[in-house]
Every structure is written in structure tokens, then in C-alpha cells.
Amino acid sequence: MEGLKVSEAKMMVYIHPSKSTKIYDAILRELSSLLFKFNENFNGVVLAYEFDILDKSARILNGIHPYIGVRINAKSLIFSPKPDMLLEGKVVKVTQGSIHVIVLGFASAIIPEQDIRDEFVYKIKHEEEVFSSKFHKRHVIKVGTMIRFLVKSLDEEILHISGSLMPAHTGCICWLARHLEDGAVTERSKKKKRENEEESILQDHGTVSGEALSVKDDHRIKKSKKGKRPKAES
């Protein structure tokens, strides 16, 4: 899935002097406060992290409430969706006017009716609301379906994504995987057929001084000459 990246940066973490005997736990607490929130410094949402303390001798910073500054090297997993990226998520609600999705278990996304391609038709099957493809009966989107969709925009404050199912390569992930695999098999079959045809042509033709000579045509010509009768003289 697009939108995920690993970011590595050197940081200064400020620890209250009362936590000086438990520096490691205090750093964990500070970094944990960044999780699942949009951070401008990382230009995304921090999903996970690991760190190493660079300087064992921390500095005490002057002020009304003096803090201890600890330098660390942090590696973070960042979720940073941008327009035109492809994301994957689980459908949690389907209505006639929209499809609601949860991405990575915390970010919400909505795909409004105007951004769902005409291939999908809203139906109620067995008392369940679904969007079903007019061309492929097995391509169905319903609650619980994992789908791939295109990002249109992101509201950074509430982590709300506006998505689209207009591109042909979006929809139910399971169906797309089978469809793309079938397409790859078909392409390989076409390639194999072309290779067989080329091999057959090479077997039927010889090459002399860079010029191709047809064995079949040459054989036919010789046979024709052999069976030719002499013309009677008048």
C-alpha cells in the first residue's frame, strides 16, 4: 500500500528532572504521545517507532521548570497519504450514497456516490447493502470487504480521507488480485503463442547469405519442373 514510509531523524527529547532516574521510560512516554496523530515535523501520522540514545550525558536546560535534554536517533513508521495515492482499507458501512472505510484500523475514509464509477450499482442482497459490478458478478463491495481506492484529499486535523473508486484498478482487493493474475496468465499465453509461431517460421525457413529462402516454396517449384512435359514441335 502506498502512503507508508520510514523516517529516521535525530531528535531532542525533554524530560522532567523528576524522571531522571528512569530516562528510558520517560523517552518512551514522550514518543508514545506522538502516535496516531498528524505531526507536521514528519508530515504524516506516526504509527510506530524505535530509538537509540546518542548522548549518555544529558543536558539540564535552564528555566522556571528546568528540563533534561536527551539526544536520540529515532526511526519511525509514518503514514502520509497524498492525493492520487492508492490506499487499502476495510469497508465498515455501505449506503446508497457512499462507502465508508477504515484504513490501518484508525483513519476513516469516505467514498461518495459521485466518486464511484458507473460500473458499480447499489443493490440490497439478502437484506445487505452492496455495490455490485454490472460486468463482473463476483466483484462485490459490502461490509467487511477489503478495497483499494484512490486518495482525493486528507483532512489532517481529524485524519479523514476522501477517496475515489473511479480508476479501473480500484475496488475489491481479492477480485482485483484474481483479475490481474488472470490477465498476467493471458499475456504469458499470448507471448508463448508468439514464440511458438516465430519458432515455426524459423523451422520452415533457411538463411543463405542473409537472405531467407522458403523450403516449402522451393520444393514446390522443383516438383513443378520435374512434372513439366516438353512442348511438341510444329
Rank of each mutant, 00 (worst) to 15 (best):
R194Q: 12
D204S: 13
D25W: 05
K193S: 14
G183Q: 15
M166I: 09
V151N: 01
G69R: 09
I102R: 08
V151W: 00
Q203E: 05
S133P: 04
H205W: 10
I72F: 03
A9H: 09
K134S: 11
L104H: 06
A168P: 07
I111V: 13
G69S: 14
V208S: 13
I221M: 11
S234T: 13
K5I: 05
E233V: 06
G183P: 14
P167K: 01
E40V: 08
S80V: 05
P83K: 02
E50S: 15
K226G: 10
E8S: 15
D182A: 15
L54N: 08
V94P: 00
K226P: 07
S189P: 04
I72L: 03
D115A: 12
L4P: 03
Y67E: 15
F120H: 00
K222E: 10
A184F: 15
Q96I: 03
I78L: 05
G210I: 06
G105H: 10
E195M: 09
K75P: 09
S18K: 11
P167H: 03
F38W: 13
H16S: 14
E119C: 08
A48Q: 12
L54Y: 04
G144H: 00
F42W: 03
K90I: 10
T186E: 15
R229Y: 00
I102Y: 11
F36V: 09
G144M: 02
V45F: 02
M166V: 09
E50P: 06
E128K: 05
D155K: 03
K222Q: 11
I68D: 07
I23Y: 03
I23G: 06
D115I: 05
A109L: 02
C174F: 15
E211L: 11
V130E: 01
D218H: 13
K75D: 13
L154W: 07
D25E: 15
G163I: 03
K137I: 06
D115S: 13
S18G: 11
D182Y: 13
S32T: 14
N41E: 11
V94M: 00
I102G: 07
K10W: 12
V91I: 00
D217F: 12
S7R: 01
H136L: 13
S76H: 01
S209H: 15
E40F: 06
W175A: 08
D115K: 07
K90N: 09
T170L: 01
S20F: 08
K5P: 02
E128F: 01
V45S: 03
F135C: 04
K216P: 09
K123M: 01
D52L: 04
G63L: 06
Q96C: 04
S7Y: 01
K37W: 09
S98T: 06
G210L: 06
G227Y: 00
H219W: 10
T95Y: 02
R29K: 11
L31N: 02
H179N: 15
K225I: 07
N41I: 13
G206V: 15
C174A: 13
K152G: 06
L77T: 02
D182T: 13
K22P: 10
D52T: 03
L165A: 01
I23S: 07
I72W: 02
V208G: 09
E233Y: 08
F79K: 00
S133R: 00
L34T: 06
R71Y: 08
F51L: 10
A74K: 02
I161T: 02
I60W: 08
L180A: 14
H126F: 07
F42M: 06
